[in-house]
């Protein structure tokens, strides 16, 4: 990429980004409204059953649910562009407020999980490539394959059964004990089990990737040259092989951010951890339209941004991947 077309490149990227977010919002808006079900239930609770039809129509008008879907969408879009994403039917608060209260917990879980996965995968990958086909490598590979097969929810259940029910070492749900929201020790205790599951379910995928990439790298001719120059095994590994694969690893990890954050959804629901995952599960189940929209758009923006970062990293490393090319 030359310097002259950098602004053009940025404009193009921003345009694609905005267009993608727009398409995403249309798709989610229509899909969420296609489903039969009563959004009034989540607003008024059980009182809906006792409403007369006139009251129902009035309530629906108040929430703007009687218009055709495209009218609703245009209104939503207009408001959203002004920064107003509507109110949550269940919590009767601005959607942004509801999310603001929860997002910290998810970021704590997902962010710590991401860091741990990033570092541990690097460590395990190098270890396995170092001891290729030795006993250590074989054992780690076997355990890794098994751990990546275990369904997340079942692993959560087993760990709860062992550590919370039988040994009573760790709490089984929530993010903190009642009334101890600011106690750091409590929070860490509540974080251990969910974190373990987030890490184990994703770790091997990335570690295995590094292992294979390193094994490919180790077979290159420059390794032979470096060795004949008299370099030690460790410095060949760290200074040459690892350096060659690290950039593509960064690219991969950029794509994986939304995967790992999305992986916290199931874990959050099993542990009833008050984060974005439980929130979006509830909102999609109980037709809290505005909340679903904003949550989908947030995660969509995150995914698209991360993809673009990954693409930019890859373009920087490998000039053959041009921005104009449609390879994704």
């Amino acid at each position: 990429m030359t310097k002259q077309n950098l602004p053009l490149y940025l404009v193009k990227k921003i345009f694609v980004f905005l267009f993608s977010v727009f398409l995403l919002s249309v798709v989610v808006f229509y899909i969420s409204r296609l489903a039969p079900g009563d959004p009034l239930v989540s607003y008024y609770g059980d009182r809906v059953e006792k409403m007369s039809s006139a009251e129902r129509i009035q309530a629906e008008n108040k929430l703007g649910l009687n218009d055709p879907v495209y009218v609703q969408y245009v209104r939503w879009l207009g408001n959203a562009l002004h920064g107003d994403f509507g109110i949550s039917y269940k919590y009767k608060m601005n959607v942004t407020e509801v999310i603001k209260g929860r997002i910290g917990n998810t970021l704590l879980l997902g962010g710590t999980g991401f860091l741990l996965i990033f570092l541990l995968a690097l460590f395990l990958g190098i270890l396995c490539a170092w001891k290729e086909d030795k006993l250590v490598d074989q054992i780690i590979c076997k355990i890794g394959t098994i751990s990546s097969c275990i369904p997340e929810f079942w692993l959560s259940l087993v760990l709860i059964l062992i550590f919370a029910v039988n040994l009573k070492w760790l709490p089984s749900s929530g993010a903190y004990a009642i009334g101890k929201a600011n106690d750091i020790g409590e929070r860490i205790l509540h974080l251990i089990l969910p974190l373990t599951i987030v890490v184990t379910s994703h770790l091997w995928y990335y570690a295995y990737m590094i292992r294979n990439k390193l094994l490919e790298e180790v077979r290159a001719d420059y390794v032979l040259l470096a060795k004949s120059k008299g370099l030690k095994k460790s410095s060949v590994m760290y200074k040459h092989c690892l350096r060659n694969i690290l950039p593509s690893y960064f690219g991969l990890m950029a794509i994986s951010v939304p995967h790992i954050l999305g992986g916290t959804y199931i874990v959050e629901t099993v542990f009833s951890y008050p984060g974005i995952g439980t929130l979006s599960y509830e909102s999609a189940r109980y037709k809290d339209y505005n909340l679903v929209m904003l949550l989908c758009i947030l995660s969509g923006v995150l995914v698209i941004l991360c993809n673009m970062i990954a693409q930019a990293i890859n373009e920087k490393i490998d000039p053959r991947v041009k921005s104009g090319d449609s390879d994704i």
Binding site: L23, V27, I31, A35, C296, S326
Partner: peptide, 29 residues
């Protein structure tokens, strides 16, 4: 080329909705 780009963009958008949410919404339909 253009149709290809559009379709691939569409897949990417569909991938960007968390799987669990997508399943929930479609199952509700």
């Amino acid at each position: 080329e253009w149709a290809d780009t559009f379709l691939m963009r569409l897949t990417e958008i569909l991938l960007s909705v968390p799987n669990l949410l997508m399943v929930l919404l479609i199952q509700a339909i």
